[in-house]
Design a protein around this nucleic acid. Structure first.
Lengths: 344, 344
DNA sequence: GACCGTTGTGACAACGTTGTCCAAACGCTG
DNA sequence: CAGCGTTTGGACAACGTTGTCACAACGGTC
């Protein structure tokens, strides 16, 4: 064989292209293309030769080139969330992936780690890869930087939090109402001094849930002592200190509302070291909440449903639907298990 | 303006290309390329004009075309696992993503759902997108179909389970040893009749852990009654029935070993409905295991470390390292919490 | 004023694929 | 055997980008 495409000494093995296949099968380039794409107009015998060459060379079509030529969709969507390892987001991802798969799309995933710069970088990287759509848990304060992408036809859906500076479909949990219901429940159990531990109020969900707490307290005519509030990243030490403060003194709180699953777990760990029982409701359900010594009453979200809804909205947009941007609020469900039903 | 690239009636808004930018800025195509890539040899004034045009048109470079032209790496890696929503895999993903990010790569994620056909499809789709590397939790019995990709320079690393029919770097937990240690621990607590509930033994980890159980029993000189074994997907009903069987009669088992976190949780739920306490050790740690009424003794794996190692191996390969395929076994850690220390 | 190097710029080909178009070879009819 | 359609095949351009090369304009030297 005089002329081989691959040079023996080359470090990076060259991938066979259609040209190589064509040469190996002794046919024209376009014929290979036809065979690969199942187009008609190729005799069975020729197709067999081409298939044999493909197998022999281990050819696989370069989708990048195909997409470039066709100028069409890449069949990729991107998902950007805060932390893939958080069970809430893990479930959400799974649902998004499922829907993407059912529409024949592949999924890019990225964690922003609550860092706006990182989110922006990831988003734009995904856009440079020409994803057809993006599902984002927004962290940045403003998403105006996405406007050109949106204008260029990239579908965008916001999930878990709204996006500022950009009008897009949005899927949220009923944060305020869910939190208000939970606090209302505690109030009906006779509690008046209720502590609230939540995430940084810069985060939309944290602010909304806090607002729900305040609303329920106000509706019941109970004042809120600012000393009962502790807002910040769910770190064990900070939470332990906050609890120490809230649970001591004559005006100690008798019940606690936790703003997210991380906080709830941290609070439970902290409480486990203290004697005495405090009523508690957590926002967001978590595995084994029902199996703990005092089963934990929670405001359950439905991350799977949220992910599914967001993905369906995204694919609807990608199909070219022009309707006005929607804002879906997925209801929460108060799951009574015991921890919220403790007396004062 | 006589000649505009975009037609007003067109449904799909055309993305601006470098050509459009060049026209808008009144410069040549290559000059735009130079500006975009920060190449020298462009006067400041020209660069400013180009930047203005880029901002105005909302231009973003098409990485697909760039990659095609350069023939170089896509800076994408693919991760295929069983179920993104499983906490073990969620943590593993996070670690992989972190390493990928630190190497400037984007991450495709896909769940095989333990379906070989789906795994194969995902894998090959990723390859068609020309990922630089693949990390796979293998489900298929044989991965020979990946051989051409490997030959073409796609790096492949197997994680959690070995790959058959392909020699690649592999990162595993010390399944057999971990399980044997755990069972040995139960034996030292005086147990002789120990039940084992695990996943389908077709799955490598399930088979290995079962082997560890058998080994520990054999070393202690205890026989194994096949009625003590229940292998299959972790479904509540099946597990409940199996437990009923194991825990009744005069020869009821006095301790249980669970082969994975899903099974452990299902067993705990099932046991919660029965009176009486059974010693139990689970393979794989899970959140709140230490907070349950009887804290659960587990064989802890380190999914983050496994993910990190696999990703580091992958990027080492991608950097062109030619060393022989490695097989890393990450040690497990027996975490004593109480459930394994119950008396017979 | 002929020659030089330097600086800024653009024309052109190429990456791997597909869509358009045309040509060769065939069997059929008149 | 001319004329026709049908089947099969290939040449060529284009997608958006970058690498190579060459050209134009400049100031400076002999």
């Amino acid at each position: 064989m005089p002329d081989r495409a691959e040079r023996p000494g080359s470090e990076i093995p060259a991938r066979p292209t259609m040209k190589d296949v064509a040469a190996a099968a002794g046919v024209g380039l376009k014929t290979v293309s036809r065979v690969v794409n199942g187009e008609p107009g190729v005799s069975e015998e020729t197709a067999d030769r081409v298939h044999a060459a493909i197998r022999e060379l281990g050819f696989r079509r370069n989708d990048g080139a195909r997409l470039l030529r066709q100028g069409s969709r890449t069949s990729c969507v991107g998902l950007i969330l805060e932390d893939l390892a958080d069970p809430f987001y893990a479930q959400l991802s799974r649902a998004v992936e499922e829907v993407a798969r059912s529409h024949g799309s592949l999924l890019f995933t990225g964690s922003s780690a609550e860092d706006p710069a990182r989110e922006r970088e990831l988003t734009l990287d995904f856009c440079a890869r020409r994803v057809d759509g993006l599902i984002v848990v927004p962290t940045a304060a403003d998403h105006g930087f996405l406007a050109p992408e949106l204008a260029a036809g990239t579908a965008v859906v916001s999930i878990d939090r709204p996006m500022n500076g950009l009008t897009v479909d949005t899927v949220l949990a009923a944060n305020r109402r869910g939190a208000a219901e939970a606090v209302g429940h505690l109030i009906r159990q006779g509690h008046r001094r209720i502590g609230y531990l939540g995430d940084d109020p810069e985060i939309f969900t944290a602010a909304e849930r806090l607002a729900g707490y305040r609303q329920a307290m106000a509706e019941a005519g109970h004042g809120v002592d600012e000393a009962w509030l502790a807002m910040g990243r769910p770190e064990p030490v900070g939470i332990h200190l906050a609890l120490d403060r809230m649970l001591s003194g004559p005006d100690a709180v008798t019940a606690l509302m936790c703003g997210n699953n991380r906080t709830t777990v941290a609070v439970l760990r902290s409480l486990a070291t203290c004697p005495g029982r405090t009523a508690l409701v957590g926002f967001d359900d978590f595995e084994l909440a029902d199996m703990l010594p005092v089963p934990v009453t929670v405001v359950a979200q439905d991350p799977m449903l949220m992910g599914r809804m967001a993905a369906e909205l995204l694919f609807r947009r990608m199909r070219g639907e022009r309707a006005q941007a929607q804002r879906l609020e997925i209801p929460t469900r108060l799951v009574l298990r015991g921890s919220g039903e403790l007396p004062c």
